[in-house]
Simulated assay, not measured.
Amino acid sequence: MSTRSRAVLLSAVAAVAALTLSACGKGGTSGGGGNTNFVTGNNGIATVPAGERAAAPDLSGKTIDGKTLDVADYKGKVVVINVWGSWCGPCREEAQYFAKVSKQYEGQGVQFVGINTRDTSTTPAIAFEKEHGIGYPSLYDPTGKLMLRFQRGTLNPQLIPSTLIIDRQGKVAARALEALDDTALLKMLKPVVAEK
């Protein structure tokens, strides 16, 4: 292999690695400016004081099983939004914890909703939910348009998985731009559930 061919190959491998890491990773900051009033704790969970929260955008559309869903219908409940893809390793790791905590809070004024992104069809998404025991609905968002509806600086479309907690008034209360286990998810969820 010539030096030039080797350099081209190494460049291509580096580019693929960079794309892979940016599309499904851990941590980082939200894309772009705009003051979203998030205060990030040392646990990677960012919260917004109750009086400074921005309203969640319209999150409606078809679910991965073809039904219609509008997150606004859950106003009055705390809503956990989890952005995931079946292709994402950290999403597979955290799925068991989201299934567990969603069952734990069933019937207690908390609604979990997934946003499946970048799956080219619903087939792998449905298989993912079945494999991991996910019993709550997931909006199908193959191109990431729903994520782009959030106020600039709230989410980074390159960081999957991401989780948001929407308070009972429909405002964004907390976020994590990395995979969560049940302990971290509960630390994020419990304070919002405790609000009156």
Rank of each mutant, 00 (worst) to 15 (best):
A7V: 15
L146H: 01
L148N: 11
A15H: 10
K196R: 14
A173P: 02
K100Y: 11
T117P: 01
T3A: 15
K130A: 13
V13K: 06
T123K: 14
T122H: 06
R4N: 13
V71N: 01
V16K: 07
Q111T: 09
V71T: 03
K75W: 03
S11M: 14
N82T: 07
G33E: 13
G76S: 07
T117D: 03
S60E: 09
F150D: 01
I166W: 00
A176V: 07
Y97H: 15
R4E: 15
I64D: 08
R6C: 08
G135V: 10
E195G: 06
V48G: 00
V192K: 02
G153W: 05
Y74V: 01
L69E: 03
F128C: 07
V48W: 01
R4L: 15
L164R: 00
V48N: 00
I160A: 03
E93T: 13
V83H: 04
V71D: 01
K100E: 15
G66M: 07
A127V: 06
S2I: 10
D70H: 07
I45N: 00
R149E: 11
G114S: 05
Q169K: 13
A125S: 13
A184Q: 11
F128L: 08
T29I: 09
E93C: 06
T29D: 14
L185N: 02
G44H: 04
G133W: 10
T122C: 09
L148W: 09
T120Y: 10
R53K: 07
L177Y: 04
D167S: 02
L155F: 02
T47A: 04
